[in-house]
């Protein structure tokens, strides 16, 4: 029994039944396949997270985001008063996370590619773009850069999905996609 020492003292020499060998082989090959699938998706899939990231001082990052916003602000959001920034298609676009907001609101064009920069000025935050459902971990001191290509128009919510204190559930941002 499993609660007593093995009856056969040379248990490691016992032969295996075919069905056990088959199952172990299937499990092993399935693991190989799943590994290959990740590599394959890097080569052919369209949804891969970039490896581009930089060390950045939060103050420096805030200045960059504010400079970009000052250049391309088109209006203010009526509800929140946060500027709506419409950068040129294909350019670098910047957003910051801080307790408890995403700043500014980005207005992007459908079907165009943007280099999106993300970082936090204080704690860890979670970038959850809904309803398309893209979820990223946002750190202070690290500037993440990824290329995104919006595929639908409309207002998209950015929910903070990393707990960041008592105002966490009010931390809601926006991305507007236009034609």
């Amino acid at each position: 029994m499993a609660i007593t020492p093995p009856e056969n003292r040379l248990w490691w020499k016992e032969p295996l039944h075919g069905i056990e060998t088959i199952w172990i082989t299937v499990g092993f090959l399935w693991g190989l396949f799943m590994t290959g699938m990740m590599v394959y998706w890097h080569m052919t899939g369209e949804q891969n997270l970039s490896n581009e990231a930089y060390r950045v001082n939060p103050d420096t990052y805030a200045e960059k985001v504010e400079a970009a916003a000052a250049q391309y602000t088109v209006r203010e959001d009526e509800q929140s008063g946060i500027p709506v920034v419409h950068p040129p298609a294909g350019s670098d676009v910047y957003m910051l996370a801080r307790l408890w907001e995403w700043w500014p609101i980005l207005e992007l064009e459908k079907g165009k590619e943007y280099r999106l920069h993300l970082s936090s000025l204080d704690w860890l935050h979670g970038f959850s773009l809904q309803p398309t459902n893209i979820n990223l971990q946002i750190h202070p001191n690290y500037e993440m850069v990824l290329t995104i290509k919006p595929e639908q128009t409309g207002d998209f919510g950015i929910i903070c999905n990393e707990f960041c204190g008592i105002g966490h559930h009010t931390m809601l941002g926006k991305m507007i996609i236009v034609e």
Partner: peptide, 23 residues
């Protein structure tokens, strides 16, 4: 699967300055 955040007190976002509706 529908995108709802974990560790979140209010998925209706009633105290937020903006609005967002999950499905």
């Amino acid at each position: 699967t529908l995108g709802v955040s974990r560790r979140h007190w209010d998925m209706a976002f009633s105290d937020a300055t903006m609005t967002f509706d999950y499905p």
